[in-house]
Design a protein around this nucleic acid. Structure first.
Length: 298
DNA sequence: TTGTGTTTTATTGCCTCC
DNA sequence: GGAGGCAATAAAACACAA
């Protein structure tokens, strides 16, 4: 139905006359600000309906500095301005842009309340010399623009959060690599010591074995170290085998020390005990037995 | 001047609410 | 069922570089 619309409203000659009479001096550089004060003396703003706080008279808006030569202004300054204006506003099938002042007026009204009650719509339309439907359409489009802006802001916030999480994740991966290397070194040491003790045992059995039994690892890693290595190894294996839920958005429960370090302290699942394995002793034992070489737990 | 991208005004169709 | 809101879209108006 494009083009079928007839702008019967437009800016009437009478309203334009009022507009011209309301030309103000340069001091009114912010002409709209005063219009939304409760003490506004214009007639329309005294309307008793609910939305009147954001309803002001467009007549007062015309007090601007004239720097924005809108179409309104252009037509105003012509000798036969009213005729041309009527002609302009009544061109069927032609879209006409709202004047700067009209838009400012609508913007102020929108800032006050972005929803448009019927009474407010009528009064706005009357004051602006527009069709009520035009005012409604303007508010509708304005709400759409506002929503887009909000979406952009939300997107920026989400992106910042994502970047922060990504940085956390990368540092954790780095730490993970270091721990893996450490496990390798310690495992190698264990293996070496174990072999040493085995060879010494073999040589001892060849001799007379009447002496009391010695702890084979007395001068090597302590039992505590062994259990630490096994726990770390099992955790490493757990992470590298795809059990990690860092990237698993469907897994909301982060209960191990590594994962919970990126959670908010206020989170109920925020548990961080660096000196304790997050696994139960049974799980730890099972994992360690299954993942570590048999010589650790003969 | 013209081609092109952006913004603004307006329409259409669908949905929800009373 | 009608009114109003919203998303998608069309199209006019505008801005601007080449």
């Amino acid at each position: 139905m494009a083009g079928g619309r007839v702008y019967s409203g437009g800016a009437s000659s009478s309203s334009l006359s009022v507009l011209l009479q309301n030309q103000r001096g340069p001091c009114a550089s912010e002409p709209l600000d005063s219009l939304f004060l409760s003490g506004s003396s214009n007639s329309s703003s005294a309307s008793p309906f609910l939305g009147s706080r954001s309803m002001v008279s467009f007549e007062d808006v015309r007090g601007g500095n004239g720097s924005n030569r809108s179409l309104f202004h252009q037509y105003e300054h012509e000798d036969n301005g009213d005729d041309d204006l009527d002609e302009y506003f009544h061109q069927p099938g032609k879209k006409r842009r709202l004047t700067v002042d009209q838009v400012q007026f609508l913007e102020k009204s929108f800032d006050m309340e972005n929803k448009l009650e019927p009474e407010r719509k009528i009064l706005l339309a009357k004051d602006l010399g527009l069709q009520p439907r035009q005012v409604a359409i303007w508010f509708q489009n304005r709400r759409a623009r506002w929503k887009n802006k909000q979406l952009e802001k939300d997107y920026e916030v989400l992106q910042a959060n994502y970047n922060s999480l990504k940085a956390d994740c990368e540092s954790l991966a780095e730490e993970n690599d270091k721990l893996k290397a450490e496990v390798l070194v310690l495992s190698g040491k264990l293996l070496h010591k174990e072999k040493e003790s085995e060879t010494s045992e073999l040589s001892d059995t060849n001799k007379v074995s009447q002496e009391p039994p010695q702890n084979p690892t007395a001068d090597s890693l302590s039992e505590c170290e062994v259990s630490k290595v096994s726990a770390v190894a099992s955790k490493q294996e757990d992470l590298s085998s795809g059990k990690s839920d860092i990237f698993d958005s469907d897994s909301p429960h982060y209960t191990d020390g590594v994962h919970s370090s990126i959670l908010e302290p206020g989170d109920s699942s925020y548990v961080f005990e660096p000196d304790q394995s997050d696994l139960s002793q049974d799980e730890e034992d099972n994992l360690s037995k299954s993942l570590l070489p048999p010589y650790i737990f003969p």
